[in-house]
Amino acid sequence: MPITDILKVFIDVFFKMLPAIEDAAGILAVLSFQAITVPAMEKMQQNVGNAVGHEYKEGPVFICNLAVLWSDVVDNTHMISFSHSLHKRLAREAGATGLNNDYIYMNYASLY
């Protein structure tokens, strides 16, 4: 499956699951993607390798980042549960296509 197809699946899943949190006060939910390209990974190999452990021979890596903002602490548990559910669902979708990678970018890891 081309990477563009799985990104479309991720976007579809995100929008299908989004109604579950739309009633939270001050909600702002964003799903974004970041690519670690093969040339970037090749540069990471210089000077004794890279900290994230990706090999450029594995091809590019795409990081999916869910950023959610809400304004009422009463929604904390619900929002965190939503985030975990979305993460599990996206990992399952990617795994079904052989495109899942267990790597979690530290800055986006949240409560994982």
Rank of each mutant, 00 (worst) to 15 (best):
V9F: 03
G95M: 02
D5E: 10
K8M: 07
V68C: 04
A40Q: 02
F14K: 00
T37Q: 07
V52Y: 06
F62D: 03
F10H: 02
L18V: 07
D12G: 09
Q34E: 15
D5F: 03
F62G: 00
T37S: 15
D12H: 09
N47E: 12
Y56T: 02
P39G: 10
I63D: 00
D12W: 03
I63H: 04
T4G: 08
V61F: 03
G26C: 14
N107C: 04
A24S: 10
A51W: 09
T77Y: 06
A20I: 07
T4H: 01
R92S: 13
D23R: 07
D12E: 08
M1P: 04
A96L: 15
G95D: 08
Y112C: 02
F15H: 13
I104V: 13
D12T: 13
E22T: 15
F14N: 07
F10K: 00
I11N: 10
A67E: 14
Y56A: 12
N107I: 04
G95R: 02
K57S: 15
L28H: 14
I36G: 02
F10N: 01
D23Y: 10
K43P: 02
I11H: 05
A40T: 08
D5Y: 00
F33N: 12
G26R: 10
H87G: 08
D75C: 03
D72L: 14
Y56F: 08
E22Q: 15
M44F: 00
R92K: 11
A96W: 06
N65F: 06
F14M: 08
K88M: 09
Y56G: 01
D72M: 11
R92F: 13
L90H: 00
A51D: 07
I63T: 10
I36M: 09
M44W: 02
V30L: 15
N47K: 12
M79E: 02
F15K: 07
E55G: 13
L28Y: 14
V9T: 05
N100T: 03
V13P: 01
M79G: 04
Q46E: 11
K57E: 14
F82V: 00
F14Y: 11
G53D: 13
T37Y: 10
F82Y: 10
E22Y: 06
Y112S: 12
L66R: 00
A24C: 15
M106T: 06
A94T: 05
H78Y: 08
E22P: 06
E58L: 11
I3P: 01
P2A: 07
V52C: 08
I27H: 06
L28S: 14
L69H: 14
Q34R: 13
N100H: 05
L69W: 14
N47T: 14
K88Q: 15
H84R: 10
L18Q: 05
K57M: 11
G95N: 13
I36C: 07
M106C: 07
S83I: 04
K8S: 11
K43D: 08
M44D: 06
H54N: 12
I63W: 01
M17W: 03
A25N: 15
A29K: 01
P19N: 11
W70I: 10
L90N: 00
F33I: 13
I21D: 00
L69E: 14
T77R: 05
D5Q: 09
H84Q: 07
P2N: 02
A96N: 15
L28V: 14
